[in-house]
């Protein structure tokens, strides 16, 4: 199927019908089977190489960003943290947020750990080499890019605004948009935890 428009049309239709079927059930968009399972090679905030096996067994929320992002990244992370706090205490530990910095040049382990830590122990700050990040973002069909540095050496980073949710077996399940409330996200997490 070489025609990109046809592919897009089929994808849109699949997403649309999936959304219609699931609208009563999920607040996020059901993308089960439309994206690959959770898999990555990255570096944690202690500089150690990690992959999905190190984070297995939990419901995972995958979010791309960078720590020099004072507005949307913390807004989304705070929202996810609030959703997790909305869950019964005994299941909070069964959910994790994987915050992936796509700005490894500035985000060293210390910065990542400080930033992720501000949102609670369930948030892990990860990054990696450009190659590792490219592999991961391509896998989930998202992109990132860098703006030109200003006179102070500061530059902007564009990144995907969506959060990908995986169940505790690593299967992709939902696309959580930034406009969902913490209560709606918590509701979806509850259902994901039940399997």
């Amino acid at each position: 199927m070489k025609n990109p428009i046809l592919r897009l049309a089929i994808l849109s239709f699949t997403l649309f019908t999936a959304a219609c079927q699931q609208s009563a059930e999920w607040h996020g968009k059901d993308i089960s089977g439309l994206m690959p399972d959770l898999q990555f090679e990255l570096v944690n905030d202690r500089g150690e190489s990690v992959n999905e096996a190190d984070y297995a067994g939990k419901v995972s929320l995958l979010f791309f960003g960078f720590t020099y992002c004072p507005d949307i990244c913390p807004t989304t992370l705070a929202q996810l943290a609030a959703a997790i706090r909305n869950l019964p205490e005994d299941v909070q530990q069964q959910v994790q947020v994987l915050f992936i910095s796509v700005d490894p040049a500035r985000d060293n382990g210390e910065r990542l750990s400080q930033y992720a830590g501000a949102f609670g122990e369930q948030v892990a700050g990860l990054s990696g080499s450009q190659e590792q990040l490219q592999t991961l973002t391509r896998r989930y069909r998202v992109t990132y890019g860098y703006g030109e540095a200003d006179e102070n050496g500061d530059y902007n980073v564009s990144h995907s605004s969506a959060v990908f949710a995986f169940d505790n077996t690593g299967r992709v399940r939902l696309l959580i948009r930034e406009d969902l409330s913490a209560a709606q996200i918590a509701d979806d997490l509850q259902k994901l935890l039940k399997g």
Binding site: I72, N156, V157, H159, S160, S161
Partner: peptide, 12 residues
């Protein structure tokens, strides 16, 4: 600054 989200991509 203004955060803008276009086609699922956010930028400032």
């Amino acid at each position: 600054h203004q955060t803008r989200i276009r086609d699922g991509q956010s930028q400032m």
